[in-house]
Amino acid sequence: MQDVSYYRPSSIKEAIKILSEHGPTAKVLAGGTDVIVQARERTKKITAFVDIKKIPDVMGLGIEGHRGLTIGAATPMYQIYNHSGVQEEYPAIIDSANIIGGKAIQGRASLGGNLCNGSPAADTIPTLIVLEGTANIIGPNGERKIAIEDFCTGPGKTLLQHDEILISLHFKRPAPFSGSRFIRFIPRNEMDIAVVNVASQIQMDGNKIESSRVAIGACAPTPLLLKEISNFIQGKELSQDLLENAAELFNNLITPIEDMRGSPEHRVDLAKTLFKRTMNDAVIRSNGEKVQ
């Protein structure tokens, strides 16, 4: 473990002060499942942990009627997937939260942590993007909001400044006849980093696609919102042919890399398959039905 100092502030203000004084090598500690490992394995220089879990603003979650869902950035996954309101209205968040690491990781890992870690293969970010999530941020100069689709700028890089804290994530209430789905493809059935992951959100008008959002992970330096796909299918009658044709767009939309987890060819094929599967499941959910 690198020579880290540990701080446990009880207010946002105090936390920001510590971060500002320490500089960029001070890191916010929420679940710690990424940053503690990075500090131990010396893959990033970290000199201080600022544990925010005693700050009430970043913990817990709630749905406020039509205003939608707010999730504290450091809220652990297990609290999220055990929340009946999220289960009912935001099932794609459950899809994501339930598969991040093992159960012991889910006792600690948070949406804020997953987002700030900025991995191209992060298993919650495509979901947060298609649900039009907003990141609420506080820094020395006050509050600001960033659309999650803009949050990540490169592998391990985000728009968050070193002295800013991601406080919470906000999601608007899902529209009627809408559904969402996230699927990750991994070689095993649990525990792996995604070879490709896809989240789809869809709003139906009868059999017509009123609107949709599709996001993909592990195929670019950041998770990507694929507007081209939405534009292609929007306003059209849902059919498997339509989805097949839309899937072909992936050939030009993504240029994934070759690494130990996958080849470009396999990733493109998987992207197409996961797109079709998430879409079909999202449609099922838009009818108020459950998917397997």
Partner: peptide, 24 residues
């Protein structure tokens, strides 16, 4: 084991050296 073309082992962890889990 996944070696790159320089002979560097890229998956020296139990995350990417994938042993079967109970769920497999």
């Amino acid at each position: 084991y996944y070696y790159d073309d320089k002979g560097i082992l890229k998956n020296a962890s139990l995350l990417d050296y994938r042993m079967p889990t109970s769920y497999d």
